[in-house]
Design a protein around this nucleic acid. Structure first.
Length: 842
RNA sequence: GGGCGCGUAGCUCAGCUGGCCAGAGCACCUCGCUUACACCGAGGGGGUCGCCCGUUCGAGUCGGGCCGCGCCCACCA
């Protein structure tokens, strides 16, 4: 068994050239392993749950999900997306998601088939599918039971546009222009001095300020520690405290702590036990707060209310502009804001910076497993090995546990209800869980055991958890989902299991599919999702199975523009994969992809596809020539040139096999290709006449045997890369599919050379010297502007004795190939070839 | 700030554990429709292997430093 944890592509529109690139790498490996006799477990999945699909459905149909709207069983989307988005119920919205992903998935499958991926389509899964939901919910319940999942009301990374919590792994930095503001904080006591200047890029959070910090060893501010300052405009008393994380060099050495401006604020807030003064709402606007009341103290509540009234309801950017005006008017702004450019954290799919908002969320424990995860990373075979560094960087940088709940709609729901007490309050501390037999459940429509649907949302009744899981919380289980962990084995009913290309069966051994495939052999994926997909899959497998999910990970690079930028639709690279396949042919496109070495970014290069097409055509032509009217094969290879050719081939077979074992498909292809061109250019030309019987039956029988061996071997060496053309040429003379034929073995080719062993060096030299001389003859004709068939009166080869001796073995073939009348030799230290043409130069 | 990778012919890159004149393909130039291939074949020109030290009989190949590019990570007030 060779099991591959195929990346389920995100179903949110179309596949791009980068997909074609990396999936081809995996397919080459799969085909190699299959030819090695392995049963290859090679499913395809669709990652269709999650935000990309929601966003696409919104745009495609012109709808918005509104959970408060009732389900309309007769709903049909408008034919044209309306200008004003239509509010529809969650079940209706999910139906549309399913409808759209279904058609996308058909298009994806069509492309993969056109590309020649040897996927077992009977094993396809979807991350929104029932199996995935059941496995995902079962794993969640297990984590909950073992205390590895927990719920917490806490500050969380938040996207204000999607209005959902997001995870650290989904953040990216974007360089954005901003401004540094110098703001005066007045002392809260009467007396001289004590005024503090604070630099901030987020003045709109001054109402959320809960403390001012300096470094413990900062002499400038030591005296202030323990004192209180008044926030400008709002007159809130905030303490001056010391903390190691404050950088003395930044600004004035003082920093304000707000709830919450960034993750450092969260750290300070937690470690210093500061109060919460939250001003940002889920929509990213400033919420109503009561100055002078609970949580928002002020020495001048009236002024605070007036100031805040100018900000309330505004977005962050609007509030920032307004508060700068207010600070300027009040004289608390020192100097003018200085433009700066700084990195800001964004949700990778978002358009506005993430905020930190306190909310109730589900978490999986990760931080306490940091050490174990690093160890798992070291157990894993990385291809290429240096990619492990990215994994360790990420694990070492984990800032908190993994927030897995999303306030979205199209995803796997948390299988949890909560009791509602007689006063209507939801009791989050005593969740109601479903029995395993009920999974998957949707708590927004399903009812927990012991209740009926009339009790939903009523005092004494229950409510369902409204959230869905992070898409990674499900796709981190692809080995389990693909292997159908805990599912009835579809194969057991038929006595064999359907997997591998064409549904190849494996003799029943009493094991479930999952037991046979897990841990899997290979996770192929790109380097940009090491911190998300690879990390989370390792984590889940570690938590649920206490082992790695796969033995090795093959990390592929990206496809870059010719100008070395990452290819993207937004840059106007409208090269659709299907178009590429139509223009160049699947084998040609695969050839280009297979030349991209593992882990290496590769430039998009249509020229390489033309080269691939040339190789495919060459394989057709060479096969046609070799097989046409081929004389009967002899019992053995008797001619030195034939033996030498087979020996060379054996060496390349070894190299290609070794390369494949290390997932270096690119090297395997290059070695095979290099020798194949040489085979066509020199060997085929040298033996052409002998093949036609120019030197008798024995010579023809030997070359016939050699041609069969070489052709069969080359065809199979190319099969993982050029599946279409290799299947075609194989069908001309061999039974069955080449993709089920055994991978060539060097040992078998060496076996052909067993008789007369000991002459290997001599034979190798014969082929080499003959090729050298042939090149010189061609050169002479080329320089004389004569056609290659132009006769040569005499060739004088000067060379070392052993090379001349070897040349003797190739004499007849060389004379024929070069149309040479006389071949003389002379011993010399320096090799030289003198060519005397029969015709004068043109 | 830390880490990883890369810098070899005009372009895209091979050169694995140091050693035959530094290679391939594309592009370019010349020639050739020869009984596998004109969706082709034959041949040719073209490189201070980023720079500087060092180890060695010998270094694109190993060590150190520097320069440039890309990426990852980071508590970027």
């Amino acid at each position: 068994m060779f099991a591959i944890d195929t990346p389920p592509p995100t179903v949110s529109g179309s596949l791009h050239v980068g997909h074609v690139f990396s999936y081809t790498h995996t397919d080459a490996v799969a085909r190699y392993q299959r030819m090695r006799g392995k049963t290859v477990f090679y499913p395809m999945g669709w990652d269709d749950n999650g935000l990309p699909t929601e966003r696409r459905v919104q745009n495609h149909f012109g709808v918005r999900c509104d959970p408060s709207v009732a389900y309309d069983p007769h709903f049909t989307p408008p034919s044209e997306p309306p200008e004003q988005p239509l509010s529809i119920s969650r079940p209706n919205f999910v139906e549309l998601c399913l409808k759209l992903t279904e058609s996308d998935e058909r298009a994806f499958e069509e492309l993969w088939r056109a590309l020649g991926l040897s996927v077992d389509w009977s094993m396809t899964y979807a991350t929104i599918g029932e199996v995935a939901q059941r496995i995902s919910q079962r794993s969640f319940l297990g984590l909950l039971e073992r205390g590895q999942a927990y719920q917490l009301q806490a500050p969380t990374l938040w996207d204000v546009d999607f209005r959902t919590a997001v995870a650290q792994a989904e953040l990216e930095d974007r360089e954005r222009p901003g401004a540094m503001h110098r703001v005066r904080f007045a002392p809260a006591w009467a007396g001289e001095g004590g005024e503090a200047l604070i630099e901030t890029t987020r003045p709109e959070l001054i109402p959320a300020c809960v403390a001012v910090l300096c470094h413990p060893q900062d002499e400038r501010w030591k005296g202030l520690v323990g004192a209180e300052l008044l926030t400008p405009l709002f007159g809130a008393r905030v303490p001056v405290l010391a903390h190691e994380l404050v950088e003395r060099e930044k600004g004035t050495g003082l920093v304000m702590v707000c709830t919450f401006g960034d993750l450092t604020d969260v750290t300070w807030w937690r470690e210093l036990g500061l109060p919460v003064r939250a001003v940002l709402g889920e929509d990213g606007r400033l919420v109503e707060v009561a100055w002078g009341g609970e949580g928002f103290p002020s020495d001048d509540p009236q002024r605070a209310r007036a100031s805040y009234g100018e900000l309330r309801g505004r977005s962050v950017n609007q509030a920032r502009r307004r508060i700068v005006e207010l600070l300027r008017e009040s004289g608390d702004l020192v100097g003018e804001p200085e433009p700066v450019s700084r990195a800001v954290k964004f949700f990778e799919k978002g358009e506005r910076p993430v905020e930190i908002i306190t909310s109730r969320q589900w978490f999986f424990r990760t931080v306490e497993h940091r050490h174990a995860l690093i160890e798992r990373g070291r157990e894993l075979e990385w291809h290429p090995p240096y990619m492990r560094a990215r994994f360790e960087d990420w694990v070492n940088g984990l800032a908190g546990d993994w927030c897995v709940s999303r306030q979205r709609f199209f995803g796997v729901p948390f299988p949890v209800w909560y009791p509602v007490d007689e006063h209507g309050a939801v009791d989050h501390e005593r969740p109601i869980l479903p029995g395993e037999h009920r999974l998957p459940v949707d708590p927004s429509t399903d009812v927990p055991d012991g209740y009926d649907s009339s009790q939903r949302g009523r005092p004494g009744g229950f409510v369902g958890d409204p959230d869905v899981m992070d898409t990674w919380a499900t796709s981190s289980l692809t080995p389990q989902i693909a292997g159908r962990a805990g599912e009835p084995d579809p194969g057991s009913a038929h006595g064999s299991s359907a997997h591998g290309e064409d549904g190849e069966g494996v003799a029943g051994d009493g094991l479930s599919l999952f037991q046979r495939v897990f841990p899997m052999d290979l996770r192929p994926q790109a380097h940009d999702i090491i911190r998300t997909w690879l990390f989370s899959t390792v984590l889940r497998s570690h938590l649920d199975h206490d082992e790695l999910p796969w033995r090795g990970a093959a990390i592929s690079g990206w496809v870059l523009d010719p100008d070395r930028k990452k290819m993207s639709k937004s840059k106007g690279n409208v090269v659709t994969p299907m178009h590429l396949l139509q223009e160049h042919g699947a084998d040609a496109v695969r050839y280009w992809a297979a030349n991209g070495r593992p882990g290496t970014d590769t430039a998009f290069d249509a020229q390489q596809m033309r080269v691939g097409r040339r190789l495919a055509v060459k394989l057709l032509n060479a096969s046609r020539f070799a097989l046409a009217d081929l004389p009967p094969a002899g019992e053995s290879l008797t001619h030195p040139l034939d033996r030498a050719m087979v020996a060379r081939l054996a060496a390349v077979v070894s190299e290609a096999s070794e390369s494949f074992e290390a997932y270096d498909y690119a090297r395997a292809l290059q070695r095979a290709e290099e020798l194949f061109w040489w085979f066509c250019d020199y060997y085929l030309e040298l033996v052409k006449s002998r093949r036609y019987g120019a030197v008798g039956e024995e010579g023809a029988a030997s070359v016939s045997r050699a041609l069969r061996l070489c052709l069969s071997t080359f065809q199979r060496l190319f099969a993982p890369f050029l599946p279409f053309v290799s299947e075609e040429v194989w069908s001309w003379w061999q039974p069955g599919s080449i993709h089920r034929a055994p991978w060539p073995e060097a040992a078998q080719l060496h076996g052909e050379l067993a008789e007369g062993a000991g002459e290997r060096d001599l034979e190798a030299n014969a082929l080499e010297v003959a090729a050298d001389v042939l090149r010189e003859v061609r050169k002479a004709k080329s320089e004389a502007r004569l056609p290659m068939r132009a006769p040569v009166r005499r060739v004088l080869v000067s060379d070392l004795p052993e090379r001349l001796h070897a040349l003797g073995l190739a004499r007849e073939d060389l004379l024929q190939a070069g149309v040479i009348d006389a071949l003389d030799v002379a011993e010399a230290d320096e090799p030289a070839v003198a060519v005397e043409l029969a015709e004068p130069p043109r």
